[in-house]
């Protein structure tokens, strides 16, 4: 898994590539931990192939963190397979999750 972060003004975007599973999820957690200034956090899942329950946990943790700070949180460019997981777990209704445009 590869994680890249770009910050523009008050918006931080984290690009996640590959597999977000039990082994790699803590890395995303650390990355989110490192973003303390941003008012808006965007997770770009364009190149994410798989997300496990540990990955979902990190997503929720990031959401809660931003919410607690009064910031905004969104997940964008979600591929269809990962989107299925979000739909299955009802995350798409609770969090701002945008599927990738076909």
């Amino acid at each position: 898994m590869t994680i890249t972060t770009k910050t523009e003004g008050t918006t931080a975007t984290i690009y996640v590539e590959g597999w977000l599973d039990t082994q790699s999820s803590p890395d995303l957690g650390k990355e989110v931990e490192g973003i303390s200034e941003a008012r808006a956090l965007v997770l770009d899942f364009e190149k994410l192939e798989y997300i496990s329950s540990s990955g979902l946990r990190e997503v929720v943790a990031a959401y809660k963190k931003m919410k607690a700070r009064g910031g905004t949180f969104s997940v964008v460019n979600v591929g269809s397979e990962v989107m299925d997981v979000f739909r299955l777990t009802g995350f798409d209704k609770k969090l701002e999750i945008c599927p990738a445009e076909r």
Binding site: L88, G90, K94
Partner: peptide
Amino acid sequence: GAGHQPPYVCREEFEALQLDPGLPLGLF
């Protein structure tokens, strides 16, 4: 259901049960 895969039910054939997803327990 709370964020779980819908079970399969067998009528003529096996198919996924209609299920309102619901968020997993313990989050919100």
